Computed example of a mutant assay.
Amino acid sequence: MGEKKEFARMALVASSAGPAQAAARQLEKSCPWVPLDEADAVIVLGGDGFMLQILHQMLDARRVIPAYGINLGTVGFLMNRYRQNGKLAEKVAKARHISVSPLHMTAITQDGARHEHSAINEVSLLRETRQTAKIEVEVGGKIRIPELACDGVLLATPAGSTAYNLSANGPILPLGSNLLALTPISPFRPRRWRGAILPDKSKVVFRVLEPDKRPVAAVADQKEVRDIAEVHLQVAGERELTLLFDPGHSLDERIVSEQFVA
Rank of each mutant, 00 (worst) to 15 (best):
Lys223Trp: 07
Val208Ser: 10
Met58Cys: 07
Val44Cys: 14
Ala163Tyr: 04
Arg189Ala: 14
Met58Pro: 06
Gln57Met: 05
Ile185Asp: 00
Arg130Val: 03
Lys94Glu: 15
Ser257Pro: 00
Ile70Ala: 03
Lys94Phe: 01
Gln26Cys: 09
Gln84Ala: 13
Arg207Phe: 04
Phe50Gln: 08
Gly49Ile: 00
Ala181Phe: 08
Leu166His: 14
Phe188Met: 15
Arg81Ile: 06
Gly112Pro: 02
His97Arg: 13
Ile108Ala: 02
Ala133Asn: 09
Lys134Glu: 13
Ser177Tyr: 08
Lys29Ile: 09
Ile197Leu: 08
Ser257Leu: 08
Phe260Cys: 09
Thr129Gly: 10
Gly170Glu: 05
Val205Glu: 13
Ala133Glu: 06
Ala119Asn: 05
Gln110Thr: 13
Phe206Met: 10
Ile108Ser: 13
Pro187His: 11
Pro171His: 08
Leu148Trp: 04
Ala24Cys: 10
Glu3His: 06
Ala22His: 01
Ala20Asp: 03
Leu72Lys: 15
Ile43Tyr: 01
Gly86Asn: 09
Val13Arg: 15
Gly237Glu: 13
Val219Ala: 02
Glu38Thr: 01
Tyr82Pro: 03
Arg191Glu: 04
Asp252Met: 12
Thr242Gln: 12
Ala119Leu: 01
Gly49Met: 13
Gly46Pro: 00
Lys5Asp: 04
Cys150Lys: 02
Thr183Phe: 05
Val235Gly: 04
Leu27Pro: 10
Met105Arg: 12
Val92Pro: 06
Arg130Ala: 12
Arg127His: 06
Met79Thr: 07
Asn71Trp: 04
Ala168Ser: 09
Tyr68Gly: 14
Ser15Gly: 05
Arg194Asp: 05
Leu36Thr: 09
Ala262Trp: 08
Val205Gln: 08
Pro247Leu: 08
Ser124Leu: 07
Met10Phe: 00
Arg191Lys: 11
Arg191Leu: 09
Met79Arg: 03
Gln234Met: 06
Ser99Met: 05
Arg83Glu: 15
Asp221Ser: 03
Val75Gly: 08
Ala220Pro: 06
Glu230Arg: 11
Arg114Ala: 14
Glu210Ala: 11
Asn85Leu: 11
Pro171Ala: 11
Leu12Tyr: 01
Pro158Ile: 08
Val75Met: 11
Ala23Asp: 03
Ala220Trp: 07
Asn169Gly: 05
Leu12Ala: 02
Gln259Ser: 14
Pro187Met: 07
Asn165Phe: 02
Gly140Trp: 10
Arg194Val: 06
Glu136Cys: 12
Ala113Phe: 06
Val100Glu: 02
Ala24Leu: 05
Asp48Ser: 04
Gln53Asp: 11
Pro190Asp: 08
Leu182Gly: 05
Val64Leu: 07
Gln234Thr: 07
Gln259Asp: 01
Val208Gly: 06
Gly170Ala: 05
Ala24Trp: 01
Leu78Arg: 05
Ile43Arg: 04
Leu175Lys: 04
Cys150His: 01
Arg194Asn: 01
Phe260Asn: 15
Leu175Asn: 00
Ala229Gly: 05
Gly170Thr: 14
Ser16Trp: 00
Lys5Arg: 15
Glu147Lys: 13
Ala93Ile: 12
